[in-house]
């Protein structure tokens, strides 16, 4: 592909839930562009008939019985939360 653009970088940042400054956008456009250009090395290889590897071990879906197990208490789970109220995580408003 042609060089990645600043607008693309801003779009990807939004998808990744990152707020990046103009300055960072500039730097990121260069660095990502370099890395993506380098990654295009892979296009030298004909992989039309190659299966993708998602995992190196031959594992089938691993299931356990659907039984409730004791894990972390609600109180404990809230311990590290930046904000909480009435036994729940508290966040800023979701709807404007």
């Amino acid at each position: 592909m042609s060089q990645i653009t600043k607008d693309q970088v801003k779009h990807v940042a939004h998808l990744a839930r990152l707020a990046i400054s103009e300055d960072e956008t500039e730097k990121m456009t260069k660095h990502l562009g370099d890395i993506i250009k380098y990654a295009e090395l892979l296009n030298e290889l004909d992989t039309d008939h190659v299966e993708p590897t998602t995992h190196v071990l031959d594992l089938k879906n691993v299931m356990r019985k659907d039984e409730p197990k004791k894990w972390i208490d609600k109180e404990d789970a809230l311990q590290n939360a930046p904000d909480k109220q009435d036994g729940q995580f508290r966040v800023p408003s979701i709807l404007e």
Binding site: A39, L42, L45, P52, T53
Partner: peptide
């Protein structure tokens, strides 16, 4: 990109 890389992973393996 992603799928291509997974295929190359097969070749490396």
């Amino acid at each position: 990109y992603y799928k291509k890389a997974q295929k190359v992973r097969t070749l490396i393996k």
